[in-house]
Design a protein around this nucleic acid. Structure first.
Length: 586
RNA sequence: GCCACCGUAGCUCAGUGGCAGAGCAGCUGUUUCGUAAACAGCAGGUCCUCGGUUCAAAUCCGAGCGGUGGCUCCA
């Protein structure tokens, strides 16, 4: 264990720094709890751990904290830091711990949860004592720069049936400079927020008339459709067939699929001609009907139905978020109907496609989670054994690092989820592959085996990008709005220097358009500098300046959004340059 | 759904009970310009909605709608 006992020696390595921050933040949480108890003597303490970027502490109080409370707490915390109060660790018996925290119901619960024989430790600083494993810094003076950030409600033990506690979030760093840098990074991340960029780049908008339902403006629709076009290209290679299915179905279908029973709260319903209909939240039942519409031979499998159909899910208010959690969206969704012996190959093929796509978008490695059999569940243990093994074998064959999550699978089958973080580090599930033993039963799906007997196929639900809305949201933040050329809604802006160059600029634009490039002419009565600035702010990949010199020579002066100036180039060369980038999906 | 905060011009925001403001964007005019913001003028408001308190409400109170940060949820 590295000692920071003097508190002054700067950490000499990254891991030491991480360790120091961890202890400092943990200690800051204790200091905060101490102050809260002084200001709110009736407050009950829950837990107060350090986190990735800071710390929090949960309290049960008679009224929520106000911003003024938080300011007062922070001010008094600084005083304790200035006083340099020592932290002291002490091991106590279970009985002593129970007695010491007799007035703390949450601490009692925690003590009861500590396995017999395990040491119970407490940490003191001044008059404050907390049940805590540690470690901590040796003195409150080692908490160099701290700031309280947010107050939020949080359920005890993360269960919404438990009382809601008041959580105060804060962060602490080894120096004011490091804290300021951290806050600056947060500000930088906010500049990449897709909701902000969506407005600034005219990609999409939201209107209270349709909460959590994006309106894609022309530029956003271009990117959206290009994503679909890209996926269609993959489908050609990977053997998928695209289908188009209804938007609303009689409730009978949802009763049969089980959605009416299990997912009803999240669905939209309507009644027409005295018959109740449900708007589809998923495509699977529709695809099951298509599969069942004719007799299938084992030779026909796998059948892979892809569907970009629009889905509607009622999401509880408070959970929606920009494009990443919406109430209407479409997925690059597909259902594979296959024989049990084909699961492995199908999952492998899909994982390869995901890998290919994520690499194209230059995403970092996704976090991968393998969710295993829950209770209760459908299907035999033998089927689960086989399905889980198939998923795990594929993950290992592809050398993906993944986390096993026992009990986290859906009742109908195990699944693998792929997660990517947004600008603020919040993770979103994009790709998913889920095996389903339930749907084939419910829809009595069959194929005729090689022995002439009817067999039950397996259904694989899979989406690569997942919700296209969510994917686009994450993608916008990933690129900071600067889409690669092939995805940019406007690939080039023609910038005539003066009015007399307008006609030439139009000619150049037409030449580019004729080759399928997306071009605009900025013929506003503005100076060239202003047009360049606006094109830069729109993150346009190519700015093509047209003045006297260019018009005379049949050139365009090429400026890239990086600021690089390629100088005058023949228009044909500019077109080649751009087409090359598009073809390579750069 | 739960906790907190927020809602003023297209956008970003100022305005703590007494005539609704600024910058940018927009429009009009002048300017015709060489790689990140020309100049001038004009126009733009249900201060989210409804109700209440008050001589008087953007401002105080209540409810609703919407959003933001968390929590829970995401068959």
């Amino acid at each position: 264990m590295i000692s920071m006992s003097d508190g002054a020696a700067p950490p000499s390595s990254m891991s030491e720094l991480a360790d120091y921050r961890h202890r400092m933040r943990h200690s800051a949480a204790h200091i905060m709890a101490d102050i809260v108890r002084r200001l709110f003597p009736e407050a009950k303490l829950a837990i107060g751990p350090p986190t990735e970027d800071g710390f929090y502490y949960d309290f049960l109080v008679s009224r929520p904290f106000t911003p003024e409370d938080v300011a007062a707490i922070e001010a008094q915390m600084r005083e304790v830091v200035a006083q340099g109060v020592a932290f002291q660790r002490q091991e106590v018996s279970r009985g002593e711990a129970k007695a010491l925290f007799a007035q703390e119901p949450f601490k009692q619960e925690i003590i009861d949860g500590i396995p017999p024989g395990e040491a119970i430790s407490i940490y003191r600083h001044g008059a404050f004592v907390d049940l805590c494993e540690g470690p901590h810094v040796t003195s409150t003076s080692e908490v160099k720069a701290l700031k309280l950030l947010e107050v939020a409600g949080a359920y005890w033990r993360g269960d919404e049936h438990n009382p809601m506690l008041q959580r105060i979030y804060g962060t602490a760093f080894e120096s004011q400079e490091a804290l300021d840098e951290h806050l600056e990074r947060l500000e930088e991340a906010r500049r990449r927020d897709h909701r902000r960029l969506g407005r600034e780049l005219d990609l999409f908008l939201f209107d209270p008339i349709a909460p959590a339902s994006p309106f894609f403006l022309p530029k956003g629709a271009i990117v959206y459709n290009l994503l679909i076009q890209y996926v269609r290209g993959l489908y050609d290679r990977y053997g998928y067939q695209e289908v188009i299915t209804p938007q609303i179905f009689s409730t009978e279908l949802w009763k049969r699929s089980g959605h009416y029973e299990a997912y009803r709260e999240n669905m939209y319903f309507t009644t027409v001609d005295d018959r109740e209909y449900g708007v589809k939240p998923m495509n699977c039942p529709g695809h099951a009907l298509m599969y069942a519409s004719r007799l299938r031979s084992y030779r026909d499998l796998p059948v892979r139905y892809a569907d970009f159909g629009r889905l509607h899910r009622y999401e509880r208010s408070g959970v929606t978020h920009g494009l990443t959690r919406v109430r209407t969206f479409s997925q690059d969704d597909a259902h594979i109907f296959c024989r049990p012996d084909q699961i492995h190959q199908e999952v492998k093929s899909f994982a390869g496609m995901v890998e290919e796509a994520y690499r194209l978008f230059q995403f970092p490695k996704p976090r991968v989670a393998l969710s295993l059999r829950p209770d209760p569940r459908v299907g035999t243990d033998a089927m689960w054994d086989r399905a889980e093994a198939a998923l795990e074998e594929v993950l290992q064959a592809l050398e993906l690092t993944y986390e096993r999550k026992p009990g986290e699978g859906a009742f109908y089958g195990p699944k693998v989820d792929f997660f990517i973080a947004d600008a603020l580090g919040r993770e979103w599930q994009l790709g998913t592959v889920q095996l389903d033993f339930s749907l084939p039963e419910r829809f009595d799906l069959e194929y005729i085996g090689d022995d002439g007997s009817p067999q039950r196929p397996v259904v694989i639900h899979r989406a690569m990008l997942g919700s296209l809305e969510r994917f686009l949201g994450v993608l916008i933040e990933h690129y900071g709005g600067a889409f690669p050329v092939w995805l940019a809604p406007v690939q080039a802006v023609l910038i005539p220097i003066a009015d007399r160059h307008g006609e030439y600029a139009q000619q150049v634009a037409q030449a580019l358009k004729a080759r399928g490039l997306r071009v605009q002419v900025d013929d506003r009565n503005e100076r060239m500098n202003a047009k360049i600035r606006d094109a830069q702010l729109q993150k346009t990949p190519y700015m093509l300046v047209a003045g006297d010199r260019e018009a005379a020579e049949g050139n365009a002066a090429v400026r890239l959004r990086s600021g690089e100036n390629l100088g005058p180039r023949p228009v044909a060369e500019v077109i080649d340059l751009m087409l090359e980038a598009v073809a390579a999906r750069r």
